[in-house]
């Protein structure tokens, strides 16, 4: 069953005195319930516009974005409240996506308070402490500010904040690309473990194909506002059919010096021919 469905979504930006920019062209994307689906593209491909549309902060020019029967761009009142509670986001940069003035307790507990899921202060604190333990932090961190944590820990806080209200759909926008290399694996494992344990659905937006291959069961590739290839990630990444996907895959640096040098030789040869 599909939990999130984008149907023929178009978005055109009009700027004064310029050609209109078609940021999204007939996007069709389905996120099946209980899966981790990857959306891969380069900067300017339309990834950000898709996320903003799902957030309800950007209205598509045409098409529908349906979450569990609710058309997000038109949602109001109770429907909008349900979307806000059931769809949560984890952003790229945990430093700027966490309010620097709030303590961890307030940050993680905010959703519980706003959606009146836990109005009692001490019980809320206890639940936040549980959540922190779940993401690998501890109840000693409750009264600290995000600034005193490392990048990886901040992203854990952001994940705890998103998971606090028990979302059904988690949208992750490049959740590890701003983190230190040695910490990325921790956060990826955490996301994977949480998803397996709690069974929520994930839309994972990334530019790194290796990361996508590691954690996504399905993947869609977007190029200049269009989905050019979509399917199970093993199939798409092992035997890409679209030239763009092939080019992306070829460009991924290979951490094997022999293979990488051979690639470099080939590229130099191509360069000379061209």
């Amino acid at each position: 069953m599909s939990l999130l469905e984008l149907r023929d979504v178009c978005k055109t930006f009009h700027a004064f005195g310029r050609e209109p920019v078609k940021a999204l062209r007939d996007i069709n994307l389905t996120v099946e319930e209980g899966t981790i689906t990857g959306l891969v593209g380069e900067s300017g491909s339309g990834k950000t516009t898709i996320i903003k549309s799902i957030m309800g902060l950007e209205k598509p020019t045409s098409g529908t974005i349906t979450y569990d029967g609710i058309n997000i761009p038109e949602a109001k009142g109770d429907e909008l409240r349900r979307v806000r509670r059931e769809v949560q986001f984890v952003f790229q940069d945990p430093t700027s996506s966490l309010n620097p003035r709030m303590t961890v307790e307030k940050l993680v507990g905010e959703g519980l308070l706003v959606h009146k899921l836990e109005t009692d202060r001490s019980r809320r604190r206890a639940r936040v402490a549980d959540l922190l333990t779940m993401v690998g932090l501890s109840d000693r961190d409750l009264d600290r500010h995000p600034r005193s944590f490392s990048g990886g820990q901040r992203q854990r806080i952001a994940i705890a904040r998103a998971l606090a209200i028990g979302p059904k759909l988690l949208i992750c926008d490049e959740p590890v690309s701003a983190l230190d290399v040695s910490v990325q694996a921790q956060v990826l494992n955490l996301l994977q473990d949480m998803q397996e344990e709690l069974g929520f659905t994930v839309l994972f937006i990334a530019h790194d194909l290796a990361v996508v291959r590691q954690i996504c069961s399905r993947v869609a590739v977007i190029q200049s506002g269009q989905i050019v290839e979509e399917g199970p990630s093993e199939t798409v990444l092992a035997n890409p059919t679209h030239p763009y996907t092939q080019a992306l895959l070829r460009a991924v640096p290979n951490p094997n010096p022999t293979v990488a040098r051979q690639r470099a030789q080939e590229r130099l040869a191509e360069e000379k021919v061209a």
Binding site: L57, R84, R85, Q88, F89, D93, N99, G111
Partner: peptide, 11 residues
């Protein structure tokens, strides 16, 4: 970004 984050939380 943290303002957007708060808005999508339903604040």
């Amino acid at each position: 970004p943290f303002i957007e984050n708060a808005r999508v939380l339903g604040v």
